[in-house]
Simulated scan of single mutants.
Amino acid sequence: MALILCKAEAKTPYYYERLDLHIYSLEELAYALGHYLYLVPEHFVGKELCHWIIDSLGEQTFGEKLLSLIEMGEKEERLLFRLIRESGYYTEKEVDELSMEWRRIHALSEAERREKMGDSLFSLGKYGKALDAYQDALHFEENGRRIRKIGESYIHTKEFQRAAESYRKLYERNHDKMAARRLYFLSKMCFPKDKFKDVFSELDEGVTDSWEKEWEDSLKAARVSSERKEIDGAYREGKEVFLSFARKKIESWKEEIRGRA
């Protein structure tokens, strides 16, 4: 494994909004760009970034060169890969491979690009932003895969009603067994028992029996989990301790959900 030393650390970080990331060096920036090419916004290499390179990194010659190229109307791809090369983070072969990937990305349809963007955001735990990208993709071109991804995103943002609507739509469209399974467990968690009985009545005999066993096994595991023991311990310490514990736990859950937006 090679050790890469940063040329300079920024006086103030550059905020890469799409990744919700503060960048402190060209190497960090190149890493983020190369690993999440689908998330690079249009015209990313702009005047604001150039002034950060000049003022915060002290890379005046390079920053001014980029500004000059922008003024001359240099193509977006050439600006981006000039920046990536300047970082020294990647080998020339790796840069060439990234350049080829960039061209493949921009040969995709708008719907495909939005979906791939959603996949990248989902992998980062940015479920709210992933959801927006999947919905954009679905607007351009509807298919079952995108409906499923929208449902999965709603599950992660705890919007169970909307998740159920997506899975119901997917089942009605494709008779997707996975969608029926999701509806089954959602109905166990937060819906009336018979809400999706029309869906379940169409399934092969014994399918819901296996799901019911899976549900019961999950409940048994939850009863002996460390989280359950923590709750029980706080409850045994009295009302005030338990209420304080509950407030902190609920706030931590809220923070977790906010972080998924």
Results as ranks from 00 to 15, higher is better:
residue 1 M to D: 09
residue 2 A to Q: 01
residue 4 I to H: 02
residue 10 A to F: 04
residue 10 A to W: 04
residue 13 P to T: 07
residue 16 Y to V: 02
residue 21 L to V: 00
residue 21 L to R: 06
residue 25 S to G: 02
residue 26 L to H: 04
residue 27 E to W: 00
residue 27 E to N: 02
residue 29 L to C: 03
residue 29 L to G: 01
residue 32 A to T: 03
residue 35 H to P: 00
residue 39 L to W: 03
residue 41 P to S: 09
residue 44 F to G: 02
residue 46 G to K: 06
residue 51 H to C: 07
residue 56 S to K: 11
residue 58 G to K: 09
residue 58 G to S: 10
residue 62 F to W: 05
residue 72 M to P: 00
residue 77 E to L: 07
residue 81 F to G: 08
residue 87 S to A: 13
residue 91 T to A: 08
residue 108 L to Y: 14
residue 108 L to M: 15
residue 109 S to Y: 08
residue 111 A to M: 01
residue 116 K to E: 10
residue 120 S to Y: 06
residue 121 L to K: 04
residue 136 D to Q: 12
residue 141 E to M: 03
residue 148 R to T: 02
residue 149 K to Y: 06
residue 150 I to E: 09
residue 150 I to R: 06
residue 153 S to Q: 06
residue 156 H to R: 15
residue 159 E to Q: 15
residue 160 F to N: 12
residue 168 R to V: 09
residue 168 R to W: 11
residue 169 K to C: 10
residue 173 R to K: 11
residue 175 H to L: 10
residue 176 D to Q: 11
residue 179 A to C: 09
residue 188 K to G: 00
residue 189 M to L: 12
residue 190 C to W: 00
residue 194 D to G: 01
residue 196 F to Q: 05
residue 199 V to L: 09
residue 203 L to S: 10
residue 209 D to Q: 05
residue 211 W to P: 01
residue 212 E to F: 00
residue 213 K to R: 13
residue 215 W to D: 01
residue 224 V to S: 14
residue 225 S to A: 14
residue 226 S to N: 15
residue 228 R to C: 06
residue 231 I to C: 07
residue 235 Y to E: 10
residue 239 K to V: 08
residue 241 V to D: 01
residue 242 F to Y: 13
residue 251 E to F: 15
residue 254 K to I: 15
residue 254 K to A: 15
